[in-house]
């Protein structure tokens, strides 16, 4: 992956192939900005998607729960880890079949909104992603439940 000079990361993470309009949501999910440079590309031409958003964050390395959250923003997001200016790892994010403790159930009378219990959601067929709450059995879309 070639990086334009101004956006070159030394040590950090590139989140690529975000659907257009989701860059801000991605920053929000990751609790950004914090220290270190961040570059955000919006409406970037992409051979595979037409247009895409892209986020590059210096000094950021993501753990599994954060990756699971990010993956919900769009199909086939890629996360590239850069060490000392070179790409050390590139992954296409997968949405797990079961999301544990990641989404909040939007059903106000769901038992998970009253008791201390980790939410469990099952991925449904198709895209945009939809998830079924294990407890109240309502279907929810991650946009509203993240």
């Amino acid at each position: 992956m070639s990086q334009p000079r101004d956006f070159r990361l030394t040590d950090g993470t590139v989140i690529d192939h975000l659907p257009v309009g989701t860059a801000a949501r991605a920053l929000e999910l990751l609790g950004l900005p914090r220290e270190g440079p961040i570059t955000v590309g919006i409406n970037i031409p992409s051979p595979s998607q037409g247009r895409k958003d892209i986020v590059r964050v210096e000094g950021l390395f993501l753990e599994k729960p954060e990756l699971d959250r990010l993956a919900l923003l769009g199909k086939h997001l890629t996360v590239t880890i850069v060490h000392e200016g070179t790409i050390s790892e590139k992954t296409v994010l997968d949405v797990p079949e079961r999301l544990i403790g990641i989404l909040t159930c939007r059903n106000p009378t769901c038992v998970t909104n009253a008791e201390e219990v980790q939410t469990v959601f099952f991925k449904q067929e198709g895209y945009p992603y939809r998830f079924k709450c294990e407890y109240c059995e309502r279907i929810t879309e991650p946009g509203e439940a993240l």
């Binding site: 059903n107 009378t109 769901c110 038992v111 998970t112 009253a114 008791e115 219990v117 709450c133 294990e134 407890y135 109240c136 059995e137 309502r138």
Partner: peptide
């Protein structure tokens, strides 16, 4: 509350019979 019986069944060591959990 919807899901109350599922939760109860998970924590209980005895069988839980759902007699109605909210509108679920």
């Amino acid at each position: 509350r919807e899901g109350a019986a599922r939760l109860a069944a998970e924590v209980a060591s005895i069988p839980v019979l759902n007699g109605g959990d909210g509108s679920n």
